[in-house]
Design a binder for these strands. Structure first.
Length: 790
DNA sequence: ACTAATAACATTTTT
DNA sequence: TGTTATTAGT
């Protein structure tokens, strides 16, 4: 073990060793945040603190698992496994199961996932005969979630006039009712949704001071990772628990707060000092991950945000390559250029595919990229598309388990009663639901005793229901008898799922069967492991308690593949080379966020996260047009490119950027300008690790006024080759007034084409239609069209 | 009750 | 465009 503190920098060590009160560790990107957290916990254990009195909260199971492993390596597994380490949701669901009776739940309560919540809300809206256009289930679900994150219960909601006013304004006067019904239905189903896990923890601590005191005594030290992403509910839980010991250490980076849409409050970290006046602040400012070039680009961007903790992130690595800006005609072209550049870098540096990541703002962008990479034979891995536990066949299997454990689980009931098809259709299910609600009992009760409740179905259906009930009874009986693996195996076979899946010989069907097999394999090994470790078999109820909060299976795909994922999913990860694609207005930043300054700031942080994933080389790519929702629209480069000090960027692969977003008063002036600038090096000659002379050209590129590119003025230009400069001038000088239908023209971006149509000839807004060889028909405003008749 | 056709829709999503 | 959810038809 030795003294592991030697492996830390001065400030890291200070942060690790301070444990006499609250502390805030502001951890810049790549500054060794996880290292500090793990070493701090290891250090506490070294000092003789019992691991079982340390509470360490993370946001992902993966982060918890990794940290636990690393701590285990430092102080031994027998120590690390006693830690209270896990996600907020998993830790507090464990506590809630213990204390469930106090809240009117049993310890076997189900955890509803987002789909369950949505379905429940949908059925409530239907039952209430409300219009699902005005009461869009997703909107309702979102608002309920928001309210829970802010600790506003349905009861509180309905008692406040301001909320009702808001609902009137939103044309959802009955939202408060829906919230109430939803809450009641969850309670009746003995189910909590994700937000409930935190909300009920707060309620538990609020209404039962003795219970709070108990846990305050258990948790002598509290550590929170990714503190910038905590919501109010989480903030309050931490505050309550830490109220006795005051030994709370939160770690995070305000510049990487990107989950406000899920209720995260950046002010939790910004105002930590106000909440804990005696707290000590440690700033980890050295970035060990990225080159100075990348770090300064990221700094230059994030500087544009107001309200942040001042910090000076720096890197002491070699300068590295400048961040490259790349432009393309379309999303297809972009994917092609990305794959070409990727291949080129790979060849020149000898790096592996797994050293590359392609990051995008929205999942929909992955499709074109996938197509192109497949065509070019570049192996890739998609992250977080549909996770293992979101697959239908897995959810179906889990549905049986859920219903066997918690008979009141209505969502599970609805899911599996006719899966696989057993002749119990929508009408019958609808009747069961109605009967159940009219009699204020669960569906299970109606199913058990259809006669008593006069379920209006025929004898044939009745027999099918009885058959299903028999199946479920056998499962209920088995849940205590068999271990988790045996039980799930029984579920899969007795339910008829196995036969149904086996019958499907389509590739999708085969993969569904494989997924179920994978679930069984995973279960078999964790059951064996549990038996070996503590001599107890793994029971389904325990498995279910864990699995409800799992999103993905352990990723053991070690193949050499390019990683593709959303920027959100990339947080916390790092890659030698990062391509940020779709850096366009209305996409990144997303249209949805452009309305508010806070929205834009969050998008900017997201962009910051994207850049700071890169270790050696970073490319920012945008396309001039992009197909979205089936229609191709022109797109402008993201304002975030303009936010970055242009002298730090390499525009040699984005001639378009220069042409569109800088304008020159006269061609003479332009010539003059180009003479004063040295030609730029060949950007494609990329050696990510090699030292490069720092780019020190000073020029400004003003942000484009969205929607009116022609009104832009920029004093200077990015350095270009002489040839390029000449071509721009030529295009500008050309006044296009004599263009006729049938003329052959050349366009700076679209290449060769033929004029097919003229509109409003002679007027200032004259338009021209050109059929281009490569990109097809385009309509251009003649005045601004960079075309030349040939 | 199941299938096929069509209409509606479409950020990000650690749990 | 591609998916998903509802609806109409068998």
């Amino acid at each position: 073990m030795g003294n592991f503190l030697d492996e830390l920098s001065g400030i890291q060590r200070e942060a690790v060793c301070f444990n006499s009160g609250p502390s805030l560790v502001v951890a810049g990107a790549g500054s060794g945040k996880t290292r500090v957290l793990t070493y701090k916990i290891a250090q506490l254990i070294e000092e003789g603190i019992r691991p079982s009195s340390i509470l360490a909260l993370t946001f992902t199971n993966k982060a918890a698992r990794e940290m636990k492993d690393r701590i285990g390596k430092l102080v031994g597994d027998e120590n690390s496994k006693r830690l209270w380490m896990g996600t907020f949701h998993s830790i507090f669901s464990r506590i809630l199961r213990k204390e469930s009776e106090l809240l009117g739940f049993t310890s076997d309560f189900t955890i509803y996932d987002t789909a369950d919540s949505n379905n429940l809300i949908k059925s409530i809206i239907k039952e209430r005969k409300l219009d699902d256009k005005t009461y869009a289930p997703k909107k309702v679900a979102n608002r309920i979630s928001q309210m829970k994150n802010d600790l506003i219960t349905a009861e509180a909601y309905r008692s406040k006039k301001e909320f009702h006013d808001y609902d009137l304004h939103q044309r959802m006067p009955l939202f408060g009712d829906l919230y109430k019904y939803y809450t009641i239905r969850c309670q009746k189903a003995n189910a909590m949704d994700f937000d409930d896990l935190l909300l009920y923890t707060n309620i538990l601590f609020r209404d039962h001071p003795d219970i709070l005191a108990k846990y305050q005594n258990i948790f002598k030290f509290i550590l929170v990772d990714e503190y910038q992403d905590t919501n109010f509910s989480q903030f309050l839980i931490v505050q309550k628990l830490a109220n006795k010991s005051h030994k709370v250490c939160v770690v995070g980076d305000d510049a990487q707060s990107i989950y406000s849409f899920r209720g995260a409050r950046i002010e939790n970290i910004l105002k930590f000092k106000e909440n804990y006046p005696e707290c000590k602040v440690f700033k980890l400012e050295q970035n060990y991950r990225s080159t100075p070039n990348i770090v300064s680009v990221a700094n230059s961007l994030i500087k544009k945000n107001e309200g942040q903790i001042p910090k000076n992130v720096f890197s002491e690595r070699k300068a590295g390559s400048p961040v490259l800006v790349m432009n393309s005609y379309s999303e297809t072209d972009e994917s092609l250029k990305v794959s070409q550049l990727l291949d080129k870098i790979k060849r020149q540096t000898g790096m592996r595919y797994s050293d590359f990541a392609i990051l995008y703002r929205t999942n929909a962008q992955s499709r074109v990229l996938e197509k192109t990479l497949r065509q070019k034979g570049i192996p890739y891995r998609l992250w977080g598309s549909t996770s293992f536990y979101e697959r239908k066949e897995i959810l179906d299997t889990l549905g049986y388990i859920r219903l066997a454990i918690n008979n009141n689980d209505e969502e599970a009931f609805k899911r599996i009663i006719n899966t696989p098809a057993r002749g119990i259709g929508d009408t019958t299910v609808g009747k069961i639901l109605e009967t159940a609600h009219n009699n204020d009992v669960s569906c299970w009760t109606v199913l058990s005793d259809p006669m008593t409740y006069a379920l209006p179905v025929n004898a044939g259906t009745l027999a099918k229901l009885a058959e299903f009930k028999k199946l479920m009874d056998s499962l209920v009986a088995a849940k205590e008898e068999k271990d988790a693996y045996e039980f799930v195996e029984m579920v899969v076979h007795n339910s008829g799922m196995w036969t149904a899946l086996n019958a499907d010989r389509s590739p999708e069907g085969v993969s569904r069967l494989q997924n179920v097999e994978e679930l069984l394999n995973g279960l078999s090994s964790s059951a064996a492991q549990k038996l070996e470790e503590d001599g107890e078999p793994l029971m389904v109820a325990d498995f279910m308690a864990e699995v409800a909060l799992m999103t993905s299976l352990d990723d053991n795909d070690t193949d050499d593949k390019v990683t593709m994922m959303t920027v959100h999913a990339a947080k916390g990860l790092e890659f030698k080379n990062v391509f940020i694609v779709g850096a366009e207005e209305e996409l990144f930043p997303s249209v949805m966020s452009t309305g508010t300054a806070e929205g834009i700031e969050e998008e900017r942080r997201l962009f910051y996260v994207a850049i700071t994933r890169a270790e050696d080389f970073c490319v920012i790519s945008y396309a001039k047009s992009r197909m979205r929702n089936g229609a191709t629209n022109p797109s402008n480069p993201s304002r975030f490119i303009k936010d970055i000090d242009a002298s730090m960027l390499d525009f040699s692969m984005a001639p378009d950027y220069v042409k569109l977003y800088s304008r020159v008063a006269s061609s003479d002036e332009m010539d003059l300008h180009f003479q004063s600038l040295k030609p730029r090096h060949d950007t494609l000659n990329i050696r990510p690790t090699a030292e490069r002379p720092q780019q020190r050209y000073h020029f400004n590129v003003e942000p484009p006024k969205i929607g009116s590119p022609a009104t832009n003025t920029a004093r200077n230009l990015t350095p270009l080759s002489r040839a390029e400069a000449g071509s721009i001038r030529n295009l500008h000088v050309n006044n296009n007034t004599n263009v006729k239908v049938g003329d052959k023209v050349i366009h700076a971006q679209f290449g060769m084409g033929v004029v097919t149509k003229l509109e409003g000839a002679g007027t200032p807004m004259a338009k021209i239609c050109v059929h281009f060889q490569n990109v097809g028909e385009k309509k251009l405003i003649l005045k601004y069209a960079n075309i030349k008749v040939v």
